[in-house]
Design a protein around this nucleic acid. Structure first.
Length: 224
DNA sequence: ACCCAGGGTCATA
DNA sequence: TATGACCATGGG
């Protein structure tokens, strides 16, 4: 008799965006005052909570180390100590150095801004320590290219919504998002930020579905 | 004490 | 191509 069962309607990718935006508001990402700070943050936040990255960036600022030249001139030990709170500090020290070398050899932000998105992406990926997601973070948030960033949060949320299958690789997932949305840098910017904020607080590994603004779209009720 | 976090590389089969 | 090991701090 009673169809108290929530009516699941399959939303478009833009519907999900609108719900998230209405519920969470504008996020104004990426947190960072300069393009270079955004790039450093993208590397430091690899598999790491942002709160731990903030501390590291603050230390880099206090040490006046937040520029490619300064970062390269400091001893690795010193850099590692400054970014200690972001975890994997030895690996990330090396990744920052690799990135700074490429960045300077390529002529810095101004020169890189003239590159096509494809060339820029290839260049970023050629740096040891820059993978797909970090490259796309930098492309979208530091170079304002209309590239949709995929992360673990994106996969988790959209597989629970059953809008993507979880066995797609990074490029396939990105391709789905970019084909379902207008190629709009500002949209991609805000959307990725909203997904992360939503997943961080609500669509967690152990989800808090009661307070979820997407509940009317979400088939999730069982285990993964 | 355990799980998770705004990943990526390298060695191995 | 596809797993597994490894990197490491800090908050819940």
């Amino acid at each position: 008799m009673e169809q108290a069962q929530a009516q699941i309607k399959t939303p478009t990718f833009f519907d999900v965006y609108e719900s998230l935006f209405y519920h969470h508001g504008a996020q104004n990402w990426w947190p960072g005052e300069t393009e270079f700070e955004i790039m450093v943050g993208a590397i430091l936040t690899q598999n790491t909570a942002w709160t731990n990255v903030e501390k590291a960036i603050e230390k880099l600022k206090l040490a006046d180390a937040l520029s490619p030249d300064r970062l390269l001139s400091l001893p690795e030990k010193t850099v590692a100590d400054l970014i200690r709170s972001s975890g994997y500090f030895n690996v990330k020290t090396q990744r920052l150095r690799n990135y700074c070398n490429w960045f300077l050899e390529s002529g810095g932000h101004e020169a890189l801004s003239t590159w096509t998105t494809g060339d820029l992406r290839s260049g970023l990926l050629s740096v040891n320590g820059i993978g797909s997601e970090t490259a796309d973070d930098i492309l979208l948030y530091a170079f304002e290219r209309s590239v949709f960033v995929i992360d673990t949060y994106t996969r988790r949320l959209f597989s629970r919504l059953e809008l993507i299958s979880s066995d797609l690789d990074y490029e396939q997932t990105r391709s789905v998002f970019e084909s379902k949305l207008e190629k709009d840098t500002q949209l991609f910017n805000e959307y990725h930020a909203l997904i992360d904020v939503h997943a961080k607080h609500i669509c967690k590994p152990k989800p808090v579905c009661e307070s979820c603004c997407l509940i009317k779209h979400c088939p999730y009720e069982k285990k993964e």
